[in-house]
């Protein structure tokens, strides 16, 4: 086992465990914190894939901004384990089972896909994840989508303000 593999399995286990904890935590604040842990694990994966820029952007955007917003909202509403609405146990079971079925189906599909055999993702190497190369591609081939996202942001901002001001 190489260091990369150890790290891979460690981060995977961490991510899945944290994701499950997001679900089972009764307290929404705990859910948020576990979700942040998932994001950290995924950022770790990005670093393993040498996608440094995405790793750090993932942290800044998701952990640093989005989850703070979530936390903010939860704290403002003063949600906690007592006020947490619970579904009927049968609905929960149905949800879990159908989700599980979904996973099983997809996994079996991937297992059948022979063209994936022997394909590997390059770890810890390759410079396409560096900000320099990403930036070049972003501002040449993807400059129009990039500009459009700024418009999207603006409209989202305006929308949020309008909704929030009501």
């Amino acid at each position: 086992m190489s260091t990369t593999e150890i790290l891979f399995f460690f981060l995977t286990a961490l991510a899945i465990f944290s994701a499950i904890m997001v679900l089972v935590s009764k307290n929404p604040v705990h859910s948020v914190l576990w979700l942040i842990a998932v994001f950290f694990a995924i950022s770790g994966h990005y670093i393993l894939l040498n996608a440094q820029f995405l790793a750090i952007v993932n942290l800044i955007v998701y952990a640093g901004a989005i989850m703070v917003l979530f936390l903010f909202v939860i704290m403002l509403m003063n949600l906690n384990a007592e006020t947490e609405p619970q579904k009927h146990i049968w609905m929960k079971l149905a949800g879990a089972i159908s989700g599980g079925c979904f996973l099983m189906m997809l996994v079996s599909l991937v297992r059948q896909a022979s063209e994936l055999n022997g394909k590997t993702a390059l770890m810890a190497e390759g410079n396409i994840g560096l900000i320099k190369n990403l930036g070049k591609a972003l501002f040449s081939d993807y400059v129009v989508p990039f500009e459009i996202t700024s418009v999207l942001f603006l409209s989202a901002m305006v929308g949020a303000v309008v909704i929030g001001k009501k």
Partner: peptide
Amino acid sequence: ILYVFGVVSL
């Protein structure tokens, strides 16, 4: 710097 930024936001 982005790292610093990320950590600060945490």
